[in-house]
Design a protein around this nucleic acid. Structure first.
Length: 695
RNA sequence: GCGCCCGUAGCUCAGUUGGAUAGAGCGCCGGACUUCGAAUCCGUAGGCCGCAGGUUCAAGUCCUGCCGGGCGCGCCA
């Protein structure tokens, strides 16, 4: 870890600057720390002298020299130097730096001061797939980002509660119910039978596409959707029972899929429970009391409870589009109110308002979400009941329920921070959520609510073609850079298909290199490699970028990929296996004797800083994680893992470790590689990627 | 119309508290396996960082305007 060094150095420089120039701390510039382009210049550097130049009326170089001259001594710092261009560069005490980090007790001491920076629990909500069909590649992006967020927060010591929101009462479930009952004429018992076959979610995927087609052939058929939806909302009838059954089974399929990706949850929150437990009524009281919403008595919104939308956004001309839940836009509206009235020009001057409760008394989607968000932050004054949804090796998976819950559940909700991992198309709604919090007198709640937004996954033309989809040669679709996924049309790469393909390919690669492996061993390792490939792929792009998913590219195990990083760790591990075999020397024994070995290889006396560069770079994981949490940009983490692996591979190729003849050199190299391997494995863990024993 | 996002090498993308010489993968071309594993490594070629202004000691990064593309804006969810 490098952050303790940053902190110590900043504190020292701050004291130094105020003593040297009589500047009081608040007026000091922030001390930026960076890494000089090469280790000859230094290990850390700061341009602080540039910032002070004007104020002190001195040349940056002179300031840097003064600081260097007055620097004194600081634990862990070997020396400082003023560069001719004005940078102040710092050289670390290299052997101590590495030894500290290889000693668990010392490392613990170093990390301790950074531990208590975060107070309170964070809730991360992710995945939230409509429980009516199989998960697809877009859902995998959500889960991979969400789960990585969970892992980086936990890395920092933040207690995290992972929630998966299940929209069991929405149109999409209703559509599949219509499919089974009306198109297929099935009863609940028959559906139960169908669901016993593997991959029930796949059958629903196809059925859902067929229902959509069926609606399109004759719009009057949408009446059965409306009727079914009504039944589901009210409960106590066969449609509701079927809907509940389907949602339950599909959620179990989704959980299996996500488990394959090393993704797990603490709690499933069901929309049905939010309705049944009248969370909304509670939130509504709060909003009314704080005047955040009010009843419209005239105009076209007469009879609606509305929330004023502040800010400059005077959007008009609504364009009909999406429907669905968290994973909205994949299913475009097929019918029903497709024509916007478009005759409200005369009301252009009217203040913008968002309807929260319709004139018929039914709450909108935003309303339910507001109630949920209030609960997440402990501002609702109401709680769910809880049941155990499934048993897992590491403990039960809990789900909300409306009655008959258990008393021995952990405390859920009431978090200090809430992260909602939902794609960018929901930005508007997420903004309203924060506004509602502010309006209800909880600005700090809004502060602590984060919409983790990301762009969608589309398909490359090549991959769409492979799936049997070819746009009209001269159409607009054909000219676009990618093809949009559509649950409605059933066009998309199913998550399990992708995972199957990846693991099959990985198994082939493993078999060709390790023919002696048992089938079980091969499959186990292939699984780890497959996961590494998808998870790395989904996280390496910045979140604001549309991924044009290309199967061939995702299947690559070479170059910048998850398996590349795994390979580096596996090779490093092999070195130490050999060390044990050849010399009977284990890692602990090797490290124990290190203190007395001349450290020339590490300090650069042998003419190269390469080994030290590896150590320094490997130590930056905590800094990278901090940057990742600050920016919520995980591509940084992926690039870090890759560049570290790359640096190791290059080093490994050039410099013998076990076969090095000079004893001291061999030992320091081995020590540095141990540290690098530990850090790289840790980095992979934060990305949800395992390290195979061999590959 | 208004808001948000994207525009960097042939392709796909990093570069997200403004800092020292703009990077990687893929692809192309050429090299390295009797050595700790070639899922690897080394080398060559490839750039008005969309355009134009501005701020700054310093701009791919911040500000303004424009161009091109995507998304969003409902008594849907």
């Amino acid at each position: 870890m490098i952050l303790p060094v940053h902190d110590r150095l900043r504190a020292h420089l701050t004291r130094l600057l105020s003593a040297l120039y009589g500047l009081d701390e608040p007026s000091l510039p922030a001390i930026a720390l960076e890494y000089p382009p090469n280790r000859d210049l230094g290990d850390l550097g700061t341009p602080v002298a540039f910032e002070l130049a004007r104020r002190l009326r001195k040349a940056p170089r002179a300031i840097a020299q003064e600081i260097a001259g007055a620097f004194g001594t600081l634990e862990g710092i070997a020396r400082v130097a003023a560069a001719p261009n004005g940078y102040l560069n710092v050289f670390l005490a290299r052997p101590a730096f590495l030894l500290d980090r290889l000693n668990p007790e010392r490392a613990e001491l170093l990390a301790a001061p950074l531990r208590d920076r975060f107070a309170g629990k964070a809730i991360v909500e992710h995945t939230a797939i409509n429980p009516n069909k199989a998960a697809h590649i877009g859902h995998l992006r959500n889960a991979a980002l969400g789960d990585t967020l969970v892992r980086v927060l936990r890395f920092q010591g933040v207690p995290v509660e992972v929630q998966n929101y299940i929209d069991d009462t929405g149109v999409q479930v209703a559509d599949v119910v219509v499919g089974f009952r009306v198109l297929e004429g099935k009863t609940l018992d028959e559906i139960r039978e169908i669901a016993k076959a593997p991959r029930f979610d796949y059958s629903c995927w196809d059925l859902y596409a067929r229902v959509t087609e069926w609606y399109e052939e004759d719009k009057s058929r949408l009446a059965s959707r409306t009727e079914t939806l009504h039944d589901i909302e009210h409960g106590g009838n066969e449609n509701a029972e079927i809907g509940a059954f389907i949602a339950d089974r599909i959620v179990r399929c989704h959980l299996e899929t996500m488990a394959r990706m090393n993704v797990a949850y603490d709690l499933l929150t069901w929309e049905g429970d939010i309705l049944r437990l009248k969370f909304w009524a509670q939130a509504f009281d709060v909003l009314k009391a704080s005047k955040a919403v009010y009843l419209r008595t005239e105009g076209r919104l007469a009879g609606c409870w509305v929330m004023p939308i502040e800010e400059d956004d005077k959007a008009q001309g609504p364009r009909p589009k999406a429907q669905g839940s968290r994973d909205v836009k994949e299913d475009e509206a097929v019918a029903g109110g497709l024509q916007a009235s478009g005759d409200d020009e005369d009301e252009a001057t009217e203040e913008r308002e968002k309807v929260i409760v319709r004139s018929n008394g039914v709450v909108t989607y935003v309303g339910k979400d507001i109630a949920y968000q209030f609960w997440k932050l402990g501002l609702l004054g109401k709680d769910f009941q809880y049941r155990i949804f499934a048993q897992r090796p590491h403990g039960p998976l809990w789900a909300t329920c409306s009655s008959g819950g258990r008393t021995d559940h952990p405390a859920f909700g009431g978090a200090a921070y809430a992260y909602n991992v939902i794609d960018v198309r929901q930005s508007y709604l997420q903004k309203l959520l924060k506004q509602a919090l502010v309006a209800a007198g909880h600005p700090e709640g809004a502060e602590r609510s984060h919409h983790f937004s990301y762009e969608m996954v589309a398909l490359s033309h090549a991959t769409a073609r492979e799936l049997g989809y070819a746009p009209e040669p001269d159409s607009e679709e054909a000219r676009r850079p990618f093809v949009e996924v559509s649950g409605r049309k059933g066009l998309g790469v199913k998550a399990d298909d992708l995972l199957d393909t990846l693991m099959r390919k990985a198994a082939g690669e493993v078999a060709s290199r390790n023919p002696e492996f048992s089938e079980a061993e091969r499959e186990r390792i292939a699984r780890m490699i497959g996961i590494a490939a998808v998870r790395y792929f989904l996280v390496k792009f910045s979140r604001g970028k549309v991924i044009a998913f290309d199967l061939e590219e995702a299947l690559s195990f070479e170059g910048e990929s998850g398996p590349y990083v795994q390979y580096a760790v596996v090779r490093a591990n092999n070195i130490f296996q050999k060390l044990q075999q050849r010399e009977g020397l284990d890692e602990a024994a090797l490290l124990a004797a290190l203190q007395d070995v001349p450290p020339g290889e590490l300090t650069g006396e042998h003419g190269s800083h390469e080994l030290w560069s590896l150590v320094l770079e490997a130590s930056r994981l905590d800094e990278v994680v901090e940057q990742v949490v600050r920016s919520l940009e995980f591509s940084v983490l992926a690039k870090y893992a890759f560049s570290l692996a790359q640096a190791f591979n290059a080093f490994y190729h050039r410099s013998p470790i076990l076969n090095e003849e000079r004893e001291d050199v061999r030992r320091w190299r081995a020590a540095a590689v141990i540290y690098l391997r530990n850090q790289l494995a840790r980095t992979l863990e934060v990305m949800g990627i395992d390290v195979p024993p061999r590959m």
